[in-house]
Each structure stands twice: as structure tokens, then as C-alpha cells.
Design a protein around this nucleic acid. Structure first.
Lengths: 198, 198
DNA sequence: TGTACATCAGTGAACGCGCGTTCACTGATGTAC
DNA sequence: TGTACATCAGTGAACGCGCGTTCACTGATGTAC
């Protein structure tokens, strides 16, 4: 039943966007009265938190299942995002109106998925400035990646940023509207990160 | 009065996010009854469309005012976005719930701003594949940029995508959360586009 | 095998809320003669 | 200068809607003796 509720919730998220996610609507679709759901979730926010945690876990699984090279991992990342854009938005776009995420599990979950992606980057970027290198070192250390050289961390973050740009534009249909197939764009960005001279 | 309504609308957008933009709330803040606004705007969607058009126009102005080199234009783009993230989201993130934009002026306005940014790119990317080159040529032509070589168009789109990734992450506070100053990241992306070997 | 009880999923009514929008109207301001 | 009228910004009540959440409850199922 818990799973059934999440299923319907995700379907509504996919079809009607974030604002379509409502306790009453889910209940109606399940053929059940609204208050019935309160037996399973403390409320709308709790359900939402659960959906986000699931999405992080699912993304992590997808990345883990990919071949451990950079290109395959990035391809898996993109495939996951484009197959279910609503879940990608749930993780990386602006949160829903009135939803306040102050759940420690969220921080931990996001770490798992991102670290996995970032540690597949091994090429180093052109040397960052001393200031940026310091910031990067501090960040890597706080993430349990103390061994990572700043130039590699920078490369990883750059990759992440470039991917996010491509994916969010692709998800909203911008490349489709331009008549451009995004596949080659992705391949190019991966190549740009894979070689130090980008 | 038209301007005053927009002012309040933008302030609410900035403070409470998109869902805070409501006719009644604007009216209340103006010390006026709800229906009074219908004398100035046909409804919520019309007001929203006006806000988007304004934002495009404002962004175009900001880009035009910048020095005509790539770095300055990108800096202006970023400055505009970070100074008023809510307006950037209005243009480039998911539209508001229930808002259907089928206004020809929107298409024209978005074109103005983007073409301005994209035409400041002159370096060419490594040669795109024949397929992609064809798509790029068709797109450039439909945008009145028939002279643009596909490799330059690709470079421009790559720049746009990279900027969008950086800006949307910066706007949502991701870099701040990592303790990283985003300025150098921007400078690097501009450099990567400015030189053909990225 | 039969009775008494506890558990607990789900119900329906109700709460207060804010939304966009319509409608008939008031009342001040400006214009024409 | 004074009167008759038109214009029109703004009002308040009302419409139907959906929301999250609470509350006391029903009624079926399972358990203990």
C-alpha cells in the first residue's frame, strides 16, 4: 500500500507537474477517501520526502549499474534523467511550494549519488587558482574525499555543471524545439572533461 | 498603476516563489480589492505574460549595455541572473502551474535575448558531425542567422548550455552550500568557449 | 466451537484557507451645454 | 456659473473550486480464553 501510494504520486508528478501532487488527488485515484492516506504518511511533506529519498536511491542504483568508466556513467545519468524528468526535477530543480526539507536523510542521500558520479572523474582540469583550490580541498575533505586533488575535484564539478545545463535544457524540450539531437552534445561534454585540455 | 502592479508582482515572485504570485495577494498589498486589478489585466495569465516579456526585454537591454566582447556579455548575463533569480527562473525554468504560454510575442522576445548572446560567440568548436551540422544549419537559418557556420553555432549553444548549468546551480545556492565561489568557474567556461580547443 | 474483546484500515463530515473570476453596484471626476 | 450627463476606477458579495488536516465514527478482521 505504501508502494501503491508512491506509484500514484509519481504518476501524478509526471503528468501534472509538481503542483498536481496532492493528498486528495492521490486518494481519489486509489478509490479511497483522503484521510485514509494519513494512516501511511504523516502528511504531504513526509510523502514528498519519501519520494525524493527514493529518487536519490534509484539514481544511485542506476549509476552503480553502469560500467565504471566516465562515459558510461554519464550516459546512465542522462538516461535516468530523460526517462523520468519529473524525478530529476524533484532532485535538482526548485523545491515545491511550501515544502521545507530539513531532513538529514536528504543530505546523506544526495551525497551518495553525487559522490558516485564525481569519483568517476579522474582527469585533472587546468590548475585552479590558489583560492579556488583551497575551497575545493575543503569541500572534498568535508565529503570524505580528502585524497582528491583540487584539480580533479574542479573537473568533477565542471562536469556536473555542464551535465546539469544540458539535462535541464533537454528536459524542458529546448533542444527538441531547436530541432537538435542532444546526444552528440553530451558526448562532446564528456570528451571535454575526459581530456585535461578543455 | 500598471507598473505598480508589476512591481508588487515581482516582489512577491522574489520573496515567495512562483506560487506566491496571486491576484488577491497583489491587490491586498496595494491596499485595493481583488477585482480592481481586472481593470488593468485580463487575468493572472495575462499579467504573467507581461512579466515574462518585461524580463526578456530587460535582459536584452542588460546584454546590449555590456561591452560587445564575449566575456563582458557573459558577465552581464550572469549578473542579471544572480541579481534577480526569480526573473531568470521565469524565463528559463519550468513554467508556473496552470500557465500556458501561447503568445507569439514570447517567442519573439526570447529570440531577441538569445540571439544577442549567441552572436557574440565567434570561435568555432571542433567540427560537428554531418548530422549535427545539418541540424545546426537549419536552426540558424530559421533564426535569421543563415551566415553562421555550424561549428560556431555549436559553440554558441554549448556556451549557453554551460552557462545555464552554472547559473541554475548558483541560483539555487548549490555552490554556496559547497563553499565555492562561482566566479572562477564562469571565467573558465568563458575561456573554454573562447578557444577552439575545448 | 463459541463468545468477548482488541486492533485497526478506512469513512464522511467538517475546519479554515486561498485561489481566480463574475457581477451588479457606488461614487467621484470630468465634460457639454 | 450652474446643471445634466457620461465615464470609469474601485467595491463588496458571491460563485465554485481544491487544498491539507482533524475528528469521532464504523465495521471488518484477528486473537484469547
Amino acid at each position: 500500500m505504501l508502494a501503491e501510494i508512491k506509484d500514484v504520486a509519481l504518476r501524478q508528478l509526471a503528468e501534472g507537474g509538481p503542483q498536481a501532487l496532492s493528498v486528495s488527488a492521490i486518494a481519489k485515484q486509489l478509490g479511497v477517501s483522503g484521510p485514509a492516506l494519513y494512516r501511511y504518511y504523516a502528511g504531504r511533506d513526509a510523502l514528498l520526502t519519501e519520494l525524493i529519498l527514493d529518487a536519490y536511491a534509484d539514481l544511485t542504483t542506476a549509476l552503480t549499474a553502469a560500467e565504471p568508466d566516465l562515459a558510461s556513467t554519464v550516459a546512465a545519468f542522462r538516461a535516468w534523467a530523460t526517462a523520468q524528468p519529473h524525478r530529476y526535477r524533484l532532485l535538482f530543480a526548485a523545491p515545491l511550494p511550501g515544502y521545507d526539507a530539513h531532513d538529514d536523510r536528504l543530505v546523506a542521500a544526495s551525497l551518495g549519488a553525487m559522490v558516485l558520479l564525481l569519483t568517476r572523474v579522474d582527469a585533472a582540469s587546468p590548475e585552479p587558482s590558489p583560492t579556488l583550490a583551497g575551497e575545493l580541498a575543503a569541500w572534498a575533505q568535508s565529503r570524505g574525499l580528502a585524497e582528491t586533488p583540487p584539480a580533479v575535484a574542479l573537473n568533477a564539478i565542471t562536469l556536473w555543471s555542464r551535465l546539469h545545463g544540458l539535462i535541464s535544457l533537454e528536459i524542458e524540450g529546448n533542444f527538441a524545439a531547436m530541432g537538435i539531437d542532444a546526444g552528440e552534445l553530451f558526448a562532446r561534454e564528456v570528451r571535454s572533461i575526459g581530456s585535461p585540455a578543455h
